[in-house]
Design a protein around this nucleic acid. Structure first.
Lengths: 323, 323
DNA sequence: CGGCATCCTGCAACCGGTTGCAAGAAACAT
DNA sequence: ATGTTTCTTGCAACCGGTTGCAGGATGCCG
């Protein structure tokens, strides 16, 4: 059995409260005593039990990070930067995956609620209503979804969609398909709104689609029969799947159809043709999300909204429109 | 403030112990009382505090999952299957990423120790000695590393390496490069041992390399100057990076050099040429790891060793050796 | 009607820490 | 010598639950 604070107290001949202070408020204990306690603790291999500490302080020094699908390469950079930022602030991050299932998402939040000080909710699949209700259980920062009254990090995918469509139009494309994402996705709605608001383009909207290569593969036939020369896909995975699907049907990218993705994930850079895409500031988002969350702990709740700009990365999957 | 067990007790006119039993041992409390308590609890939005419960029971019903690099696509399938299996057993999984840093890994284990019932340690970068010491703090199951006296899941990468080399030899390759992984990697050692033990092949060993596309890109020049016609890479990411690096230098795969990866990750399937690779049974490994861990809780500690077979998936990155 | 088992509930100690309060000792001021 | 302040430490209650034990109520049996 691991040593407890009482073992250390007994072995060093002081009261448990003195041992406690040695670790959580060292300036309150005499240097000599402190050193003795530390020596004994070291010898016994004592480490404060963070869960027990949390019971009285109300602070676990952990934060939860919930993502819809950990195998989507979009998330790891965000997770990594959040983890790094948290570590620098003496916090730890627990990641959990909801499998794109709102029920699992809700259950996970409930479970995490008492074991973390706050939760980073990335690309949630839950409705705003449910999220607002759950806020009573644990503080949130929401990433990639606008929820009023809550700290939020948005990556301006609407602006990104505009960049992509303008890029395609400059290349002479007039009839463009927009591949939507899954039904509950805020991102998908933003892209649609931005695309619809653009003048001078015939828009064909296809979807909802699964946010994976499978989703892209599955929609390839529809894209061909829609007679478009340019495509803006919900994300890079869909774009990669689409290119694969087009390739299988003898349609060449970018010679016959130009494809733009969103996210700028690693596989897109390795794809052939290399993917033209809207780069999302994921690392910055992860960092800011942690800061916003920690900030929301002590400051009088001032829900902040941060909107991060996206940028277009032109590679090889887009080219001049065929006449 | 969230409702506690005492709030519920007060509001329903029973003692806290009765409320406690209503949730953790319902058969011990009268049906009528139980329903009343449940109704009050529902109304107050009461949920048992799992951390507090863990303090007395010693069971958190959480398990930790530590991986070296969450952005390596090798891990997500393992994470997902572990999570699914855990959920079915009423456990939750917390994932953490060590950034390939042994010190971070150790710190993470210490932190997790009191907040989970056990830890799945995947492809650890720590030395066996340290792992054996940390076992005192928390039960482990180790994946992809042989640690004596501990439950272990191995994927037989030695056998996989043999499959890959035999495949290359059948295609007429005689001079083959083996790209090692990072220094502390058990997997890398196993591959080397298996490759060295194979007769009839001139082996060129290159490395250690970072287990990423960067690692593959960086070693491309060396591969060319080594004058080999076949390559077995530490993993798919390295293989993809290598193919990219060879391509940049005008060397065609598989026409001039054949490349075999290890892992069978998704990007390898999307790569062009599609990657020939040694498929790892990651989903099975995740499932078994959870089972082994849960099993180690109640059973009198019987450290088990499970070795899972790998298989060769032949795609487009290997072909006949040039004469 | 007495004896006994069963069911249900309360009491109180406990898990491993934290923290407000008080008291003794030492240092300092007057 | 006395009063005041500053340090240091112990005491005990508390965080939110769980659980062994005991006792009252009820039902069953002979």
């Amino acid at each position: 059995m691991a040593a407890t604070i009482r073992d250390v107290a007994r072995a060093s001949g002081v009261h448990v409260s003195t041992v406690s202070r040695t670790f959580s408020a060292p300036h309150l204990v005499n240097a000599e005593t402190r050193n003795r306690v530390l020596a004994v603790a070291e010898e016994l291999g004592y480490r404060p039990n963070r869960a027990a500490r949390a019971l009285t302080t109300g602070r676990t020094h952990n934060i939860g990070l919930i993502v819809a699908d950990i195998s989507n390469p979009f998330f790891p950079p965000l997770i990594k930067s959040a983890q790094a930022q948290a570590r620098a602030r003496d916090y730890h991050v627990f990641v959990a995956d909801t499998d794109e299932d709102p029920l699992v998402e809700e259950e996970l939040i409930q479970t995490l609620a008492k074991q973390v000080d706050g939760v980073l909710l990335c690309s949630p699949r839950l409705s705003n209503r449910v999220i607002e209700r759950l806020r009573a259980d644990v503080p949130f920062v929401v990433v990639n979804r606008r929820v009023r009254g809550m700290p939020t990090i948005l990556m301006d995918v609407g602006q990104g969609a505009r960049l992509a469509i303008e890029h395609l139009m400059r290349l002479g494309h007039r009839r463009i398909a927009l591949l939507l994402g899954p039904a509950g996705s805020w991102t998908s709605g933003e892209m649609r709104a931005a695309a619809t608001a653009t003048d001078g383009v015939e828009l064909v909207i296809l979807g909802p689609n699964a946010p994976t290569e499978q989703g892209g593969l599955a929609v390839a036939a529809e894209v061909i029969s829609a007679g478009v020369t340019g495509v803006l896909a919900y994300n890079d995975l869909v774009a990669i799947g689409l290119i694969e699907g087009l390739y299988e049907r003898g349609v060449r990218v970018p010679d016959e159809v130009s494809v733009v993705g969103v996210d700028d994930i690693v596989p897109g850079r390795l794809n052939r043709p290399k993917l033209t895409t809207v780069a999302m500031p994921t690392a910055a988002a992860g960092r800011m999300a942690v800061d916003l969350l920690l900030q929301s702990f002590d400051a009088g709740a001032t829900p902040t909204l941060a909107t991060l700009d996206t940028s277009l990365v032109v590679r090889e999957s887009t080219g001049e429109a065929r006449k």
